[in-house]
């Protein structure tokens, strides 16, 4: 089966029951993507598929052949941090760091949704074409990523700063 991960093609054979999360971590040693709950309830396993955020733990890998998969390893490197990675450091957007790769992939997907005008449940006017990402919007849109260390305030500050810079 062929997979495109962080721009590189991989030909891999595996047990058909394997989740995309286990494929990344166990078969490709891309251990940046984390396993928290393995049942869709925490967001630690968030990756991007064709630019959209999903939970890799609920995804059967076989369904994602040929799609463009991006993990935290594909967003930045220690020498070249992604703007969100740098902002997370600056704003203390983590303590243990376990939820961080998922938070950052999620924020990248969230920003793309917002650019498309996808509303959220706290958007007052669903027919609006422009949505201002205020604090409540960001909290709701990032609510699929839990942080057991309680770094949410730093996370929202970091995401906010990067979005503001992009908009400027």
């Amino acid at each position: 089966m062929r997979f495109s991960i962080n721009g590189a093609d991989h030909e891999i054979d595996f047990d058909i029951r394997t989740s995309l999360l286990d494929l990344l971590r166990e078969h490709l040693q891309l251990t940046g993507t984390k396993k928290g709950c393995d049942q869709g309830a925490c967001g630690a396993c968030t990756v991007l598929v064709d630019g959209e955020r999903i939970n890799a733990c609920l995804a059967l890998a076989v369904q994602y052949q040929g799609r463009a998969i991006t993990t935290i390893e594909g967003l930045g490197t220690p020498g070249h941090l992604h703007a969100l990675q740098a902002a997370f450091v600056e704003h203390d957007g983590f303590q243990c760091g376990y939820c961080t790769p998922g938070q950052i992939c999620s924020a990248v997907g969230m920003a793309a949704e917002a650019r498309r005008g996808v509303p959220s449940v706290v958007t007052a006017d669903l027919a609006a074409t422009q949505i201002a990402l205020d604090h409540d919007e960001l909290r709701e849109r990032m609510s699929g990523n839990l942080c057991r260390c309680g770094a949410h305030n730093g996370i929202i500050d970091a995401v906010r700063q990067v979005l503001a810079r992009e908009a400027a």
Partner: peptide
């Protein structure tokens, strides 16, 4: 609004 009230953005994308 009902759809947006459910699950998380990641799950709604799947």
């Amino acid at each position: 609004r009902a759809i947006l009230a459910g699950a998380s953005a990641q799950i709604r994308n799947m």
